[in-house]
Structure formats: C-alpha cells, structure tokens
Design a protein around this nucleic acid. Sequence first.
DNA 1: GTAGGAGCTGGAGCGCGGTCTAGATCAAGT
DNA 2: ACTTGATCTAGACCGCGCTCCAGCTCCTAC
Lengths: 147, 147
Amino acid sequence: MAGEGGRTEALGIGEVAARTGLSVHALRFYEREGLLVGPVGRTAGGRRRYTTLDVEWLHVCIRLRESGMPLADLRRFAELVRQGPGNEAERLSLLNAHQQRVDEQIRALEECRSVIAWKVGVYAEHLARGEATGLWDPTARTRPPRA
Amino acid sequence: MAGEGGRTEALGIGEVAARTGLSVHALRFYEREGLLVGPVGRTAGGRRRYTTLDVEWLHVCIRLRESGMPLADLRRFAELVRQGPGNEAERLSLLNAHQQRVDEQIRALEECRSVIAWKVGVYAEHLARGEATGLWDPTARTRPPRA
DNA sequence: GTAGGAGCTGGAGCGCGGTCTAGATCAAGT
DNA sequence: ACTTGATCTAGACCGCGCTCCAGCTCCTAC
C-alpha cells in the first residue's frame, strides 16, 4: 500500500547494472566501500534487491565520480546522508568544494583545448598548402656544443 | 655560432623540473618511455643536458597529458615528430581525435557541474530557510515488502 | 682533498578504482 | 529432476602513471 506506484520496484543487481552502466562488480564494490545511502535489501535467498531510490542515488554517485570526486569523499558524503538530517551544512560545503574543483578542471581543459586547437590549426594549414615548409624539425636539433 | 641567443641553453634535469613542474623522476621516465622528440644530450660525465626546445616540447606534452591523452598516444605522436616531415596527416588526425575527446570531456564535466550546482542550490536553500523540511531521508527508506 | 649535493641506473613499490576468479547457491524453465 | 543462468562471497589481480630506493658517480666549493 505504501507508494507502490513505480517508485519502489525491487531490482536485481543485473538490472541496476543495466540502468546505471556500472558493472555488477562495481555495484558490489560500491556497497562494500560504503558509498550507498542505506543497506541494500536482500531476498530470502540472499540476493540484493535495489530500489529505484538506490538507483537515483547511484546516478548522483556516477556524476560525482565522473567529475573526479575521490571515493573517500563520496563515502563521506554518503555517510552524511545516511546519518539523516542535521548535517546539511557539511554536505553543502563538501559539494561546494567539489564544484570548485570541477570548475577548475573545466578551466584547465579549456586551456588545453585551445593549445591543441592551435596545433591542429598549424598542421591543417601546413597540409592545406602542401607539405612545403618545415614545422618543427627535431632532425635539425641544435645541440649544445661538444660536436 | 649557430643561434646561441637564449634559444639553446643547456639545462640540467633539475632546472627542467623546475621549469615544467614535472619531477626529475617523471622526466627520466618520459625519456625512457620515448615521449621526447629526440635524444637528450649528455655531458661528458653522463648528465642530461636539455635544450629549451626540449622544454617547449615538454610543455606540449604536459597539456596533452593534462587533458587525458594516454602515454601510448603521446609516444606515438612523439615518434611521428621524431621521424620528421612526411607524416603530418597522421599527426593531425591524432591531434584531432584527441581534441574531440577533450571536447567530450568538457561537455561531460559541464553536465556534472550543473547537477552538482543544482544539488548545491537545494542544500543552500534548505539551510537558508532553516532546517525545516527533510530533503532526502534514507532513514525513511521504503523497502520492498517483507517486513 | 674532501664534503655535500645533484644526477645516474635499474628495478621495486604504490594509489586508485575497479575487475576478475573460484567455487558455491539460488531461481526459473521444461 | 535437471539444466541454465544469474548471483553470492572472499580475495587475488590489474593498468596506469608515476614515485621512490639503493648504490654509485659526478661536480662544486671550500
């Protein structure tokens, strides 16, 4: 009776793997590492039964991991959520700190991108006007004295 | 006589480390791995003497690595450059492929960032209006039947 | 000539984030 | 009842990109 409407499906690990893109190995690993927000249910026979809430949480985890959050931080965040209300300030600061790191990453990547784009441009132009000029010739390296 | 003007300083490994931010270990490692565009010079006593060209190349390497190019690809690129003119098309395609991966990374990171920003917003608002409502309560987990 | 620091080589070790294996159990179809 | 396939646990293993160590040599300064 308590909100069965699509919200509380019980999912096997394989199904969850399919829905999240994580391997079943990774799912078990995440659980062992304490990255989940609550104990995963089990059937009588001992198989894991995930809920759609677990899956939602996993999707959050995936984003955080994708953006480079280390497992340790993710574990800490999960702990906070598990502990329930009262520690929202810490959760916020954790996320804020991570967001800043992500911003920095993006900035760095964009800088790299522009360097690469420039080099791509150089080669493209070089090829366009037909092999003519040498770009960089490590062959003609000017070595320091001592012939 | 041949272009000594600041261009062809001979630098010790420590100096290069300082200029690039790579450790001396990493520099020796890169050399062993064939990531450099030419053999590094040596003094009579066997010490490495880098040129400013080496340093420039290292700066390129750093950007490529920072943006996630695997050592294997970087090695291939270095090989191509080492081989001299004639393979610009391959160099270009290598860089192009990498640029695309970088673009994709940036896109993914921005997506993560927006998810994180949203969560940050939720927590911030929650805290702002004082602890009132529960956000997510894993305590009140609706477990699948059997209880 | 001698002390101290930078550099050399070869190879072992490490941190991270999973991945994989073995061997057993559970569950569904026929 | 039997087969087939998904899942279980514990623990070993892996790839990447360095990092670090031992033991030695080379320089520079005093």
